[in-house]
Each structure stands twice: as structure tokens, then as C-alpha cells.
Design a protein around this nucleic acid. Structure first.
Lengths: 280, 280
DNA sequence: TGAAAAATGTAGTATAATTACATTATAGCT
DNA sequence: AGCTATAATGTAATTATACTACATTTTTCA
């Protein structure tokens, strides 16, 4: 538990001056970071040793240790502010910004995730006759990744990254099949048509795409990925990371649904891979 | 930008003792938090004022302020305590845990990123006759993703996900080619052999893999991805996310290196994709 | 109400951080 | 290469900061 939560905890039995201290600190924790024990004591109207006792009472070594903890707690709260990459950025700047924006994309996706849609998709996949994954361009590697993950299950799964193959397969599906269409923008005409074809066969069409997009419109279930407009020149494609994490969620939920018997199956599977590895 | 990234930044022109300090602090930042300026100075083998100047040189008020910043930076990372997924977890729990562990994997990777290695890799890629990407299993989709990103440059790039094709291509490389081998564990025997083949042709072998792994040993440059042992049954493969972000960094740095002329090229490229999209 | 316990404060001490100045190393120039 | 100017580092003194021991006040409960 963070120190801020500790301070907020009113249940803790505290002395009068301890209360005054907690109140004051919570009012502006940032400011406390640049105060000495003397100034804080003066501001609150207590003596220095009282402040010290307050800190040790919290299980910390002393006032400096308290400030360290407070700094940590505050750091956790402030979010990731994404900044654009500029042409003159150094390598370390680029690294920092890319990681920042990836973190931000993840948080965004998590915030708008629809648990019900995921549960329904898992339900459909678990009982599906076959699962077909479709992706074009950047999304094709996501489709292949999903294929790799879903291969572990005993359900026939295939990823198509070729438009012709996608159309052929989509047109030949049936009511018990699941078609998963992956597109960042949800505006790729070709992928929309694939979804339409799938729809006509009564297969369940799942979209891993931007909510509200044209593609989403033709899907039975939408696993939403936030779409930030890719206007900046050097913006990394954080969206596919988000798509992959959605795939992770789908695959993991599916694995859990299979129950304990499946856990043994997974074990055997891992076993079969060990012999391709160098022991070191 | 976090203070840790600042310390990692090798570009910053630093004095000898400043380097010693940065190195020491990065080795165990947690420990520094409980040190006085005197003990840190003693450990590193410099004088107290040198430590102080180091702190102020970083744009901070002094040593205590430095510790405060460090505590904040560390908190951001350790904030992500990865919890394992349990069979009885609900969908929302699974979602939360997967996002958490992905955040954690990103932070870990960022922490051990080597700017110099990236710069060297970018340099090699920028002047390469051709770039060959190799990945097997889960890493094959990463290779394809990298191919997609690097396709935007005017350098011949190809991803191979087939072992035979990988070996054939690797054996036929030359001194001006770059071979990028992608493997999470760095222990896949087949991939190690591909790296060896590439090495023999004097091509530059770049590994996106676990540092210290057998594969890393055969690489000229290693872009490290943290390898957590995949012992748990339902652990999501967060490593490939980290690999993808490394690819992002590589591609973005490469783009920046190409200069303003290339920006126009990128613009035309984006233009060519718009006609595949529905206006909405 | 009065004694014991808890809380707070005062003053002194120890520790830690900073500043001013001296010394040494480094880089640039003739 | 040798000299000078500049930067980097160290020593020692100073100042700020935190902590400890002890005294005083307040609170609690019989």
C-alpha cells in the first residue's frame, strides 16, 4: 500500500498533531517534498521531533525516508504524457517517447475494454468448428501471432494474410465458425468486404478494430482498440501492440475456460518444445 | 523523462567521475536511496562535492533532491507487480493482470535497453545492402511485423519464418548485409545455427533476444529483451510485445536518420494507402 | 481529583549536505 | 612539445538538517 493511502486511512488511531500533519501533507504532498523537517513542523504548528515521531510511527526510518516514500507514491499517480517524436531527438529521447506512448496506448485500450464482448467471443471460440483470422498490412502479423497462440487449443485455427485466400475462406464458412477480422483503422475496404462475406454465411464475425468504425459495423462482436489518428510522421504504430494484448486476453480466457484437463495438454505441449532448445 | 533514462543516456557528455557515479547508481538504484552522500562518494571512490555537482549538473537541487527523483523513477517501474493468472480468475481479473504484466515487461525492457547497441544497429541498417529478418514460432510474427515496418525504407528487406529459407538466405549473405535474428529465449538451436551461418559470411548479425543467451553469443549486436522464465501455465507471452517495441525504436531511429527528404517519401507512401480506405 | 501514561516540546548533539577555496588534470594553441 | 586556459576534482570549513535525551504538558482513568 502506498503511503498516501496510509495517510488517508482515518481508521488509524492517531494523536492530535499526527492528524494535523496528515491533513496538511495530503493537502499538498508535492510541496512537502521540498520542505525540511523544520519548515514542515513550522507550517503545521508542531515541533520537529513530533514530525519525526510521525514518520517513525508510520514504520519508516525518519523524515528523509518519509519524503522518499512520498515521492514514490506521487510518481505512481501521474500518468504517462505522450509526446511526439521530433526529428532532432536523440536515441534516448526516441526510446523514452516510444515506451511512453506504448504504455499510454495500453492504458487507453484497457480503459475501453468490454468484458462482456470478450466473454462472448471466448464462448464462441470455445465451441467453434473452426476459427479464421484475417489481417492485412500491419495487422497481418497480428493475425499470425493470434494463430500461433490459438494453435495451442484443440480447435482448427488458421490465419490468412492474403486477400484472395481471405475472401475464399470467409465465403465458405458456416454458422458454427468464427471469423476474426483485424484492422487498426477499421476502414480498409478489403477487410470490410471480408467481414461482409463472413456475415452472409452466418458465421460469428469478431472485429479487433476501432469501435464505431465501418468494419465494426459488420461485426457481431467488437473488441475495441483505441484509434488515434496516425497523422504524425514518426508515430509508432502502438495500435498493433494493443491488438496483441487483446489477443493475449482472448487466448488466456480461452485457456482458462478449457479447465484443468487442458492444463495437462499445455504441459505436454511445452514439453515438446524443450528439445528444440539448447540447455546452456 | 525519468532520471534513470537520463543516467542511461550515454550521449550526454560527462566527466570521468560522473560516469563512475552513473554506472554505480544504475547498478543498484534502490541501494542508493538509503545512502548518505558520504557513503555513496566512498563507494564510488569520489569526493562528496563531486557527487553534489553530479546532482546539480542533472538539473536538480542537490543530493536529497536526486534521491527523491530516483525514488519516483523506481516507483514507476516497481509499481507493476505482476501477479499470476489463477484458474478461477474472472474476465476482468484476467484483463487487469495481462495489462499489468505487459506494462511491467515494457518497463523492464526499457530499463535494460542499450542505446549504443541501437545506434550501431541503426547505422548498419541504414547502410546495408539488404536486411534479413528471421524468427521461428512466436517470433515469426515479430519478424513479419518488422518487415512491414522496414519496408517503408528504400532498403531491400525480407522476413523468413521458414527454417530452410532462413538457412539458405543466411548462408548467402555478405559483409554489407544485416541479419536480424529474433528469439525470445535465445536458446532455440535452429536460430542459433542461422546466426552462426550469417556470422561466417561476415554479415552483421543483430539479435533481438535475451542478453547473455546462447544466441546473443553469436551476435555482433544484441538488442536485449528481458527473459522471464515461462514457467507458469497461463503466463501471457509479454516478451514479443517487448520485441515489437524494440522494432519500433529501430524503425523510428532509422526513419529519423534518413532526414527530411525521407519524410516526403513517407508522405507519398501514406497517400498511396488512403485509396484502400473507406472514407466513412 | 490525582497519579500514571501518553503526547508534545526544548535544547543539545550528531549527521549530512553544501560552499569556498586549493589542487590537479585536460584540452587547445603556438 | 610546452605553455596557458579551462575544466574537473579534492580538502576543509560552514551551514543546514535530522535525531536524541530529557523536561514539560496534556490526557486518561481509577
Amino acid at each position: 500500500m502506498t503511503i498516501l493511502a496510509e495517510l488517508r486511512n482515518t481508521e488509524a488511531k492517531r494523536s492530535k498533531s499526527a492528524h494535523k500533519l496528515a491533513d496538511y501533507i495530503l493537502r499538498d504532498p508535492e510541496a512537502v517534498l521540498s520542505m525540511s523537517i523544520a519548515t514542515l513542523a513550522g507550517e503545521v504548528g508542531v515541533s520537529e521531533p513530533t514530525v519525526n515521531r510521525f514518520c517513525t510511527g508510520l514504520g519508516l526510518k525518519g523524515f528523509p525516508d518519509f519524503k522518499l516514500n512520498l515521492a514514490g507514491a506521487l510518481a505512481r499517480n501521474q500518468g504517462n504524457i505522450t509526446r511526439n517524436i521530433e526529428p532532432y531527438d536523440s536515441t534516448s529521447h526516441v526510446v523514452a517517447k516510444i515506451f511512453e506512448s506504448t504504455h499510454a496506448a495500453l492504458s487507453d485500450t484497457q480503459n475501453q475494454i468490454d468484458n462482456t464482448a470478450i466473454e462472448q467471443a471466448v464462448e464462441k471460440c470455445a465451441t467453434a468448428r473452426s476459427i479464421v483470422l484475417c489481417g492485412l498490412g500491419a495487422s497481418s502479423s497480428v493475425a499470425l501471432d493470434a494463430q500461433h497462440k490459438l494453435l495451442r487449443f484443440n480447435i482448427p485455427v488458421i490465419a490468412h494474410t492474403d486477400l484472395i485466400n481471405q475472401r475464399m475462406t470467409a465465403a465458405g464458412l458456416g454458422p458454427n465458425d468464427v471469423l476474426i477480422c483485424i484492422s487498426y483503422t477499421g476502414r480498409t475496404q478489403a477487410m470490410i468486404e471480408v467481414a461482409q462475406l463472413g456475415r452472409e454465411t452466418q458465421a460469428t464475425v469478431v472485429g479487433i478494430t476501432a469501435s464505431g468504425s465501418p468494419l465494426a459495423h459488420y461485426c457481431d462482436l467488437v473488441l475495441a482498440v483505441r484509434a488515434n489518428e496516425d497523422t504524425e510522421l514518426y508515430t509508432p504504430m502502438t495500435s498493433r501492440i494493443a491488438q496483441l494484448v487483446i489477443v493475449d486476453v482472448l487466448a488466456t480466457c480461452l485457456a482458462l475456460k478449457q479447465g484443468p484437463e487442458f492444463a495437462r495438454h499445455l504441459g505436454k505441449l511445452k514439453q515438446s518444445l524443450t528439445m528444440t532448445r539448447k540447455d546452456k
